[in-house]
Write a protein that binds this DNA or RNA. Structure first.
Length: 315
RNA sequence: GGAGAGGUGGCCGAGCCAGGUUGAAGGCGCUCCCCUGCUAAGGGAGUAAGGGUCGAAAGGCUCUUCGUGGGUUCAAAUCCCACCCUCUCCGCCA
């Protein structure tokens, strides 16, 4: 969701959007279109007010006075209809432009895409290369089976078997418990969602080719539980006092991984289906920094407790 | 999948068949005031949300919203169409 008022008035907000790839021209065009839209809105509403008043007047008028009044009202309605067409075009233009604007990033975030991160901290040493990579190791232990996955479902699908399954379930349970202790409500959401949800969560139209579609039912498989979690309060006005709302979603995730041929083709990296625990918070903007810090702290604690080396990056 | 009933304000619930003075009766809840010596009862007033615009603010003007989206009409909670959801019965079922 893009806050047009903030985009207009808050330079930091605008800078955040530009950092994530929105061109200055696009933003200017969007703001200009919205300004035109609002001017037209006033115009339409004035006509509509007249039209409403005329209709009420007819309701109160004597029978013999009505025909003339109805004629006048009809004419007014013509004018209104034309104004509405112009207004709707303006609204459509704003809608189209706004969907092209990425969510503004925080001012501390480096410009650019995923690759343009900066390393904030390195924790733990870098272990030497193992005798087998994760794919070879998983295969030899009987924990992952890509050949079987490919036979049953195609490339980039894998079976997880035996102890690896128990490990996944244990990790999920352990993590969920930790998050519940930190004030998160655990959620297992639907993974098939309507198109509206994908648009609202910001994945459509830009990432549509990454999403599996169930055409017969007009449903889409989510690539992350973020989508149905975002849908939990869709269309609601949340009372500021109820914030923050913290959810820990667990779901299978489905990704087409279109355009990633040749990358991470082995093992269980970048597969079409995987399971994930996701933290998701609804917060007021002034507390979002605090909440983000909380998320980072929890993530660090998880990796620390597991005894794994890691980097903290700003992206 | 088939048949039927229904979705109204914070909640319950009228209105819809016979379109207009209904942004919506009534009740509950909530807020304020009055009354009252004992956590109760009674009386009065108020009480939806969002957008645009003007304003320093208080607030004013205005639009939208009765599941959602269209349509008919000068006028729609009320009429028409499509969709979504809930409930009941039947069918089906790994």
């Amino acid at each position: 969701m893009i806050d047009l008022r903030a985009l207009l008035n808050d330079p930091k907000y605008r800078a955040g959007a530009e950092k994530k790839g929105a061109s200055s021209e696009l933003l200017d065009e969007l703001l200009e279109s919205d300004s035109q839209r609002r001017a037209l809105q006033t115009e339409v509403e004035q006509l509509r007010a007249k039209s409403n008043a005329a209709a009420k007047d007819i309701g109160k008028a004597r029978q013999d006075e009505r025909p003339a009044k109805i004629d006048a009202a009809s004419e007014l309605k013509q004018t209104l209809g034309e104004a509405e067409r112009v207004y709707n075009d303006a609204q459509t233009k704003v809608d189209e432009l706004i969907l092209q604007v990425p969510n503004p990033a925080h001012e501390s975030v480096p410009a650019g895409d995923e690759e343009a991160f900066e390393v904030v901290e390195v924790v733990g040493g870098t272990p030497g290369p193992p005798p087998l990579d994760h794919a070879g190791f998983g295969e030899s232990m009987g924990w992952t089976d890509n050949a079987l996955g490919a036979a049953v479902s195609g490339s980039r699908f894998a079976y997880l078997r035996g102890a690896a399954v128990l490990l996944e379930l244990a990790l999920v349970q352990w993590t969920m418990n930790k998050l519940v202790g930190r004030g998160f409500e655990p959620v297992i959401p639907p993974v098939l969602v309507r198109e509206d949800m994908m648009i609202d969560a910001g994945f459509f139209p830009t990432d549509r080719n990454q999403v599996y579609e169930v055409t017969s039912d007009e449903l889409f498989l989510v690539g992350t539980s973020e989508v149905p979690l975002a849908g939990m309060h869709r269309g609601e006005r949340l009372d500021a006092a109820s914030l923050p709302l913290r959810y820990a979603g667990f779901s299978s995730c489905f990704r087409r991984e279109a355009g990633t041929y040749g990358k991470d083709t082995r093992g269980i990296f970048r597969v079409h289906q995987f399971d994930k625990v996701e933290m998701f918070i609804w917060s007021s903007p002034d507390k979002s920094g605090e909440e983000h810090a909380r998320l980072l702290e929890i993530e660090r604690e998880i990796i620390d407790d597991l005894g794994l080396p890691y980097r903290v990056i700003n992206v």
